[in-house]
Design a protein around this nucleic acid. Structure first.
Length: 107
DNA sequence: AGGGTGACTGCTA
DNA sequence: GTAGCAGCCACCC
């Protein structure tokens, strides 16, 4: 068993609450868990012990830009994340930017 | 126990 | 529009 902390549990819970076809920003997520730092949220997702259980691919940054996936900031993993989002109806451009900002589910 | 890092954000040049 | 700097919280070595 991984040593998941309460903070990470909150992050995973909040992320798993994101409906399909929608995405959320690290800032909104951090605010949702009452955390003043989105970087801490990213840290939890980067070290996420349950990647397939948590739709971490539905989390993007404030600039509507894709963050990363399974610790890969660049590479094929990013393309896979983009593909997953495209399957849910969220389309991204070649630069990894969200095309339809309305897909962002703000709390 | 301490320091450095990071899937971030916001402002300024 | 891009580029650089500082601030923030939690985790890892």
């Amino acid at each position: 068993m991984s040593k998941t902390t309460a903070f990470q549990q909150r992050v995973y819970d909040a992320v798993s609450q994101i409906p399909a076809g929608k995405v959320t920003t690290y800032k909104a997520l951090a605010d949702s868990i009452n955390c003043g730092s989105a970087q801490a949220v990213g840290q939890a997702l980067k070290r996420n012990p349950n990647a397939p259980e948590v739709p971490c691919h539905r989390v993007i940054n404030s600039q509507l830009n894709i963050g990363g996936y399974l610790g890969e900031t660049q590479g094929a993993s990013l393309e896979k994340k983009r593909q997953l989002l495209a399957e849910e109806g969220v389309e991204f451009d070649v630069g990894g930017r969200l095309i339809d900002g309305s897909r962002v589910a703000l709390p």
